[in-house]
């Protein structure tokens, strides 16, 4: 009986705010939940808020990259928001640059990014 991270829907954007220390199974469940919710709801964008996340290891990093790739295939853009400086430095040292994942400083900026698809910066590597 593992808990699940709630996926909220605001307009045509799905919002996930991670507030718990992520156990691997929860990460896998979340990835599945998101894919099916995108299809169900016809969402155009996904925002994953990791402001409260203290570490991102290669497992979670891979989930973020995979989710971005899956959602793109389902015609939705994924933005990861709120990564802490220490987490970013560690990820770089670990060798993960989250290719294909778009990022924003805050939830607000992330939502703005999705609201203006024609206007945004080129997708990041």
């Amino acid at each position: 009986m593992t808990e699940r991270v709630p996926v909220l829907k605001i307009g045509d954007v799905l919002l996930v705010s991670i507030q718990v220390d992520l156990e691997d199974q929860i990460v896998l469940d979340l990835q599945e939940d998101l894919a099916s919710r995108i299809v169900e709801s016809g969402a155009r964008g996904v925002v994953i808020d990791i402001t409260a996340v203290e570490i991102v290891d290669s497992f979670v990093g891979r989930m973020l990259a995979t989710t971005a790739a899956i959602s793109r295939m389902l015609d939705a853009e994924t933005v990861v928001v709120g990564m802490r400086p220490a987490v970013a430095i560690t990820l770089v040292e670990l060798g993960l640059s989250l290719g294909g994942v778009r990022t924003a400083l805050t939830l607000e900026k992330g939502l703005n990014l999705l609201a203006r698809p024609g206007n945004d910066r080129p997708a990041q590597r």
Partner: peptide, 13 residues
């Protein structure tokens, strides 16, 4: 280089 990549991960250029 790492600083630039880390900034990107955080959503900054």
């Amino acid at each position: 280089l790492k600083t630039v990549v880390a900034a990107r991960l955080m959503g900054a250029e």
